[in-house]
C-alpha cells in the first residue's frame, strides 16, 4: 500500500467535491472540480486507489502544486 498525494495543477477555488473519503477510485476518476479563470478544472485520481484524505473544502482557495487529496493504492 502506497500513499499518493494529488496536487492541484492550477491556482483556483474548490467549486465541487465529487468523491468521499473511503471511495474506491479508478484511474482518471474525478475527485473534485476547481474553478480557475472561468474554467472548471477537474482533479483526477492519477491511478486506481482508495481516497483516504481530502485536504480542502468547497470554496477553499488552492495554490498550484498544493496537495488537495491523498489516495492509497
Amino acid at each position: 500500500m502506497a500513499k499518493v498525494e494529488i496536487p492541484s495543477e492550477v491556482t483556483g477555488n474548490v467549486w465541487k467535491i465529487t468523491a468521499s473519503v473511503g471511495d474506491t477510485l479508478a484511474a482518471d476518476d474525478v475527485i473534485m472540480i476547481l474553478e480557475s479563470m472561468k474554467m472548471e478544472i477537474p482533479v483526477e485520481a492519477p491511478e486506481a486507489g482508495r481516497l483516504v484524505e481530502l485536504l480542502v473544502r468547497v470554496e477553499d482557495g488552492v495554490e498550484e502544486d498544493q496537495v488537495v487529496a491523498v489516495i492509497e493504492t
Binding site: E9, V30, I33, M39, E40, I41, P42, E44
Partner: peptide, 8 residues
C-alpha cells in the same frame, strides 16, 4: 492540453 470537467 488544458483539462476540463467532462462531458462539456
Amino acid at each position: 492540453s488544458y483539462p476540463y470537467a467532462l462531458p462539456t
